[in-house]
Design a protein around this nucleic acid. Sequence first.
DNA 1: ATCGTAGAATCGTTCAACAATCCAACGATC
DNA 2: GATCGTTGGATTGTTGAACGATTCTACGAT
Lengths: 223, 223
Amino acid sequence: MSALAQGRADLERASTAQKVADMLRERVLDGELAPGLRLSEEAIGGALGVSRNTLREAFRLLTRDRLLVHEHSRGVFVRRPGGEDVRDLYAARRVIECGALQNWPAVGDDRRAAVRTPVEEASAHGARRDWAKVGAANIRFHRGIVGLAGSHRLSEESDRLFAELMLAFRVVSDPERLHMAYLPLNREIVELLSSGDVDGATTRLREYFDLAESDLVAQLEQR
Amino acid sequence: MSALAQGRADLERASTAQKVADMLRERVLDGELAPGLRLSEEAIGGALGVSRNTLREAFRLLTRDRLLVHEHSRGVFVRRPGGEDVRDLYAARRVIECGALQNWPAVGDDRRAAVRTPVEEASAHGARRDWAKVGAANIRFHRGIVGLAGSHRLSEESDRLFAELMLAFRVVSDPERLHMAYLPLNREIVELLSSGDVDGATTRLREYFDLAESDLVAQLEQR
DNA sequence: ATCGTAGAATCGTTCAACAATCCAACGATC
DNA sequence: GATCGTTGGATTGTTGAACGATTCTACGAT
């Protein structure tokens, strides 16, 4: 059955606009297309060998994910999150993740493992000074927290929030350093959860958000 | 300043695809385009006098809002939420709204009024047996709760959730009756909040979600 | 230095066309 | 008689060109 599901996923990947959007999404997230850059329909369409109409559909898909912003008659730009965006982003994360954490006592071991495991992986990568993988594991940790809610829609929306956040990290220097700094805090949250202290873990998580937000906002506004 | 902001909003309303999307959104939400209906590009485009490409852009905008679903090479359909969708929807609402409620002590009077006022309005309309307006006020009540989070993004996502939920109500009979039944519960939540008992209000809100979800799911799956 | 204007560049939208895909009806086979 | 190809017809996916509308840029007037 798993093989069938996989095959179906491959089949659905047929649309050209979807493939173009996936390609552009990678380029944006790895920083090749820098925040603030304008994406010319003619230039990109010519480079990728797709028509303007198809490219515009791809742009719509990425606008939905908030990676691009569309300004009427001016074009689409790679989103450049500002301090206000980051504040808004963290306000949403506070509500979603702290709210999801309340579900900890009610969920099964698989959902709990999705929170615990990434923290251990982050520690392992941290010992090897592999900051990029630490950052990736850190995101998996927070995805696991959102997963406690058990809502597919909410997880998808959170993925968009995380992607937007990575865009904000792109603007600041030395993005991985931030992830590393909060690693012991994550570990403490997991320990509090395992001991059954959900409220304590929620408080710690909220502290993490406060720290990370002010840190990121400070770096964003100083430039 | 308010006049300027209004004028700017009018200026930005320029895009044809946007206007088409707004028109279709109304038709979907008021039930004229029933859930499950397939929207032919040729038929709709011809009726509205816009080209296929523009119409397809409008479709993308509405699929972003989850009012339409897009099946590759088959077309777009008005979404028909099933039991699983509603469960997912309420799981998300539980997390978001209960999480937002924790912010009650921290927000100012304007945000609190956005929670209190709709409940009083709902009572007034309920006394006049105007169930449609009761339902509208009920949604404003929950929008107010989400607004406690102070995140523009989260409020927008919640608006999409509410729209999707109204689509689910379209499938069942007698949708307004549901809103009416939970009116006294809303009032109790507001009273608990005003007395400073945030945890008690959160518990009541969660009870409301449990009731509303099972009620709606039961009606959806019985047909 | 500011303002207004002409021209270039780009976007918004439409149209026509064709390939790719889906669907329903029709027969063929067992 | 039910299941399985097959064949058209209808609809979507994608392309390319075209033209009006909007924005941007640079130049010149006041």
